[in-house]
Write a protein that binds this DNA or RNA. Structure first.
Lengths: 124, 124
DNA sequence: TGACAGTATGACTACACAGTAATATAGTCA
DNA sequence: TGACTATATTACTGTGTAGTCATACTGTCA
């Protein structure tokens, strides 16, 4: 399984990227830019769930959960299937978690950097 | 250099993540959810630039560039330094590009999937 | 068939923020 | 000092969308 991080040479690709492609990428990031949607994604990480379970797991209202699930599904991040009365959602794009971990790492490094500034200040 | 993708076991970490942390992560994604800001990031990929250069490179207005640069800098994605009249910006968090490539890969896979659907439809 | 449970949606409010035009600020050089 | 350049900021408008309430839809079971 090729790791995209090992495939270099994307810089030139990015430079040729048109407005349209940029909008697509930005839109993808936008879908992940709401805590309620991240909650849903995380709740689904250990397996598929129906809407009611997701409502309980996240503490969000049913209407809101339904709305955000729609957004995530349209973005291709989740998949859904019906089973009787229930609609069962699942993660359809596992790369989402890599992204989250990436952001976490980046934030952590930044916070640690700030912490150093603070400690050196108070230590002075 | 440890690759965060090889460090598994983040699932349990994500599950314990509080509201506050989720908001931080969501905020990070939000910064990247605007094409104008992605443009600026890409324009800076091959080296630091002053604001005027970025205005030319992106086609955005000066005021808008200045605004978006501020957002990106506050998020820790860019760094800045003054040099006479000029203010020179640079990428401060290289992981941004990994994120973009990740999204690109994810989108590409999705588009290819849709293309298959279309071709099998028209082929039927 | 009716009653019910699970999910989706329409209409609405509130708020965040991208982009703009005009102006302010900061640094340079004569 | 004043004229000039590069950048930042202020005040504003317009748009997108998260979240909510009420209601509609859909499938199940008696």
């Amino acid at each position: 399984m090729a790791n995209i991080f090992q495939i270099m040479g994307n810089q030139s690709k990015r430079r040729r990227m048109g407005e349209e492609a940029l909008e697509l990428i930005a839109g993808r990031f936008r879908v992940l830019s709401e805590a309620s949607r991240l909650k849903l994604i995380i709740a689904l990480e250990d397996g598929e769930k129906n809407v009611s379970s997701l409502v309980k797991a996240t503490g969000l209202t049913q209407a809101n959960v339904s709305r955000q699930l729609q957004t995530l599904t349209e973005a291709g991040i989740l998949g859904r299937r019906k089973e009787g009365l229930n609609v069962i959602y699942r993660i359809a794009d596992q790369t989402i978690f890599d992204m989250c971990d990436h952001v976490c790492g980046s934030l952590q490094r930044r916070i640690e950097g700030q912490a150093e500034v603070f400690s050196s200040r108070s230590g002075a």
